[in-house]
Design a protein around this nucleic acid. Structure first.
Lengths: 140, 140
DNA sequence: GTAATTGCAAAGGATTTGCTCTGGT
DNA sequence: ACCAGAGCAAATCCTTTGCAATTAC
């Protein structure tokens, strides 16, 4: 038997690739696409396949260890977040940097309007985009 | 001179296809993909290419005449809405049917938290998903 | 007649899958 | 040795584009 019950957490065998991806995610302040992340890994001299990056990100997102959003072009962007609690983001449209915001208010609003319409099993997505202070400055 | 000033609206030359698409959009109560809409058009005996459907939907969405959202699979779904004013949707995850809801509250919230983070030129997306009464019943 | 519109076929681009190889334990 | 994980190449899927034929006005 193993030292860790296979319950729900121990899905990853500590491989070089997983660790490297983990490190990059820790460093990237902005929402980034799988391809960007892969490029960054290579830039750092890591040998890792794009497929592997996709597969890890998928699992991490499922487990809630990274957040995933879609940009307007349909690309999925990933980012490791500070809090594991439910939250939303204000993301810079130009550089991808994002700020986490808590939104009790929206959660309640969403739940309420959905219920009023007779919907159950309610879920929601809220994304806020804008120009961050730095990018706004550049544009002037 | 034409009966309509060409300002910004007169982009479409009344073609059979445009009219047919328009009719279908008027009938479809649910958010539907371009492909679904195309299928529906064919079902109605219309000869129309998928490309044309995509192109029209694109323009209509730009002009705000239809709303476009993305489902979890990355497909874009379209729907003609009752109100032209800014609003959000509670959409059934199972059948696509949706209810329009007004969300002064969220608009303000989004604007506020973004401003507090120093972001400008703020925009947001809010989508609520759930099971509509009918689909919820079926599942039991 | 002339320019906008159509639509097929092909291109694009992100993501996933098949299947074999590799490396950890 | 065994099995999860890696990764290349090929396959998918939605959507867009190139371009010649068609059609509205």
């Amino acid at each position: 038997m193993s030292s860790q019950p296979p319950g729900r957490g121990t899905r990853v065998r500590g491989t070089r690739q997983a660790e490297a991806l983990n490190a990059v995610l820790g460093d990237l302040p902005a929402f980034s696409s799988a391809q960007d992340i892969h490029a960054e890994l290579r830039r750092r001299g890591q040998r890792i396949g794009l497929t592997t990056v996709y597969r890890h990100l998928q699992v991490l997102a499922e487990d809630g260890e990274v957040d995933a959003i879609r940009d307007q072009g349909g690309e999925t962007l990933y980012r490791r977040c500070e809090t594991s609690a439910h939250h939303h983001h204000v993301t810079c449209r130009a550089c991808g940097r994002s700020v986490e915001v808590e939104g009790r208010a929206v959660e309640h609003w969403a739940q309420r309007v959905a219920s009023e319409a007779g919907f159950v099993d309610v879920d929601h997505t809220v994304e806020i985009f804008g120009l961050c202070p730095d990018c706004a400055r550049e544009r002037r």
